[in-house]
Design a protein around this nucleic acid. Structure first.
Lengths: 344, 344
DNA sequence: CTGAAAGCGCTTACAG
DNA sequence: CTGAAAGCGCTTACAG
């Protein structure tokens, strides 16, 4: 692999001049420029990124730390972040923390040492706040409200509104004994959704029924079974998220409980999978792609010196009606309203 | 952020000595070492990775190029690669090519310029062979047979055997009119599975019935519908992969065709999702984690100077029986054999 | 418009 | 065991 020095030699100029035509950082005589370009083309020269990173103290690397891409929600998020990063000329280092604070810390450390230009992280650990505060590179926190005095950016969906929309929808669909399968409270998203649920219950004069549930399939199966024992008269279930909704559907199918005729189900997230399931899932859609795109864009803008006045951005959610719920008026023919989307 | 020079100053030694205690590359007087370590601890010094990469001409970065992590198969593969990379002290740069040769080329170029220590790639494009050949960094090709004269490594599953196992299983389950939904022939995996299917058909005196189908959900829906029109008497379907099997199940459910009583279905891959579906999918399992782990291990071993005699590794597949098929003997009670796994 | 020189922060022969 | 020096391959004031 040729170096800039070699190109300079062949073009009878200094390395500085080659650098200038490469980066367009200063005016270069057109004649000279043409000569340099020619040599570059002929040799297939490509500048070494590591050397450039070292002298510029910027690597054009964005780090992304998520619990695990095995969770489809984070897969889709990571994909959106990668797309925007690539579009803006950045590379993405993807890190799976498994929600282990030690791994999160190790990855942040690694990214700082690599001169990463920004870190996008989804964490639920309060202990991380100090690290985030101390981090010399820009941080964007996803899907969670950061503590007050932080200098980090945050992008998340309006989960409170999501909780409300989901509950109101089930009420409109005729449910009166709605059970909320609530994700771990340490997640802002779970806590906010729960709050929305409770508020609507109060407004509608319904008694809240709650079951704690992790955001994964296995716990979803377990808690669905418990739920059916505790609340045998349940007629509506708000699943903690779409993955849990998948479990709910599986358990109800196994017990031959018809969906949505006996029990209606609403998920959260609107991951791609939710439309592939049979029956297709009614859910609260988060703007997953928009969240990821915005997170990467914030980092890129920051590197390019663009101001970011807004530290926290909250994006709207939407109700996506499919086959696991049905409005009263449609109950007669038992058909689901097809893909009717109501913007929140 | 302090530099090695600053640590050296405070510990009254040269930067070279600090480097030596940091890397253990040469014996250092215990007294001196203790002094250096103390300063490092007190200052919280962490060496800059970019500078280290530049002087060592190794970045401890592994690049991974997949079509898209939106496909669960590649998500699981990427997760396994990341785990092994992290374990061995490497970072993973994840790249989604969308099977676009231009993007693949751009990413390979980028990774080379970053001094990546290895590139793990899943590509179906023959045109890439020249690039792979020219690539100065070690390459591991996944899920595809590389062309003969390449110096790249390859790791893949035994898809021919997979095609055989799937077909033989359906025959044992009593199917006689089995349709193979075959993935794009440019994929080695698809071509090999088809070959296995054809061979078993010949051996069993069955007439092969084939439908071409892309490896995605949308085409799966379309081709399933066409399949039912072309072959109205079909009693067994070999889906191109698990994602396509999801589509098959969806279409059959919509048409109220009972699975497995009227039509039995077998997928390929055994992605995590296949067990979450309702009904849970009978499928041919690829050792996804083993493939990813092995790919990352090959790169790490290479960097560490360990010999890699075997250029191509072919891993076994297994039949995973769940609820979309049932053996003759079980047909009577209509119950699926639960998680009975037969090692290939 | 152009070049010589210093610098980015490490590592590693080389000499002692 | 240790240090001075050169080098990794770029970029960027500085001077002309």
């Amino acid at each position: 692999m040729a170096t800039i020095r070699e190109i300079a030699r062949q073009a009878h100029v200094s390395p500085a001049t080659v650098s200038r035509v490469l980066n367009g950082t200063a005016a270069v005589d057109p004649q000279t420029e043409a000569r340099v370009l020619k040599v570059i083309r002929e040799t297939g020269y490509r500048p070494n990124e590591v050397a450039r990173s070292l002298s510029k103290r910027s690597s054009r690397i964005i780090g992304c730390i998520v619990p695990t891409i095995a969770n489809p929600f984070f897969t889709e998020l990571a994909r959106a972040i990668e797309d925007e990063s690539f579009r803006r000329g950045y590379k993405l280092i993807l890190c799976n923390s498994d929600e282990d604070p030690a791994k999160e810390e190790a990855y942040i450390d690694m990214l700082e040492r690599m001169n990463a230009d920004g870190i996008i992280i989804t964490t639920t650990h309060e202990e991380m706040d100090a690290l985030i505060q101390a981090c010399p590179v820009p941080m964007v926190i996803l899907d969670r409200a950061p503590s007050k005095e932080t200098n980090a950016y945050s992008v998340r969906a309006d989960h409170y509104q999501g909780g409300r929309l989901a509950t109101e929808h089930l009420v409109q669909c005729g449910c009166r004994r709605i059970v909320m399968m609530c994700g771990p409270k340490k997640y802002t998203s779970a806590a906010k959704r729960l709050q929305g649920y409770r508020d609507v219950c109060r407004e509608q004069g319904l008694e809240p029924r709650e079951v704690a549930c992790d955001f994964d399939f296995a716990d979803g199966l377990l808690k669905t079974q418990q739920l059916l024992e505790h609340f045998p008269d349940v007629d509506g279930i708000l699943a903690a998220n779409d993955v849990v909704a998948l479990s709910v559907v599986k358990v109800l199918a196994a017990q031959k409980i018809p969906i949505p005729d006996q029990i209606q189900v609403v998920g959260f997230d609107n991951i791609y999978l939710s439309q592939l399931m049979t029956p297709a899932l009614t859910t609260i859609g988060q703007p997953i792609t928009a969240i990821g795109t915005m997170a990467a864009a914030i980092v890129a803008d920051l590197v390019e010196g663009k101001d970011q006045p807004l530290k926290a951005r909250i994006l709207p959610v939407e109700l996506v009606i499919r086959e696991t719920s049905h409005l009263q008026s449609n109950r007669a023919n038992g058909k689901a309203v097809d893909a009717w989307r109501m913007k929140s």
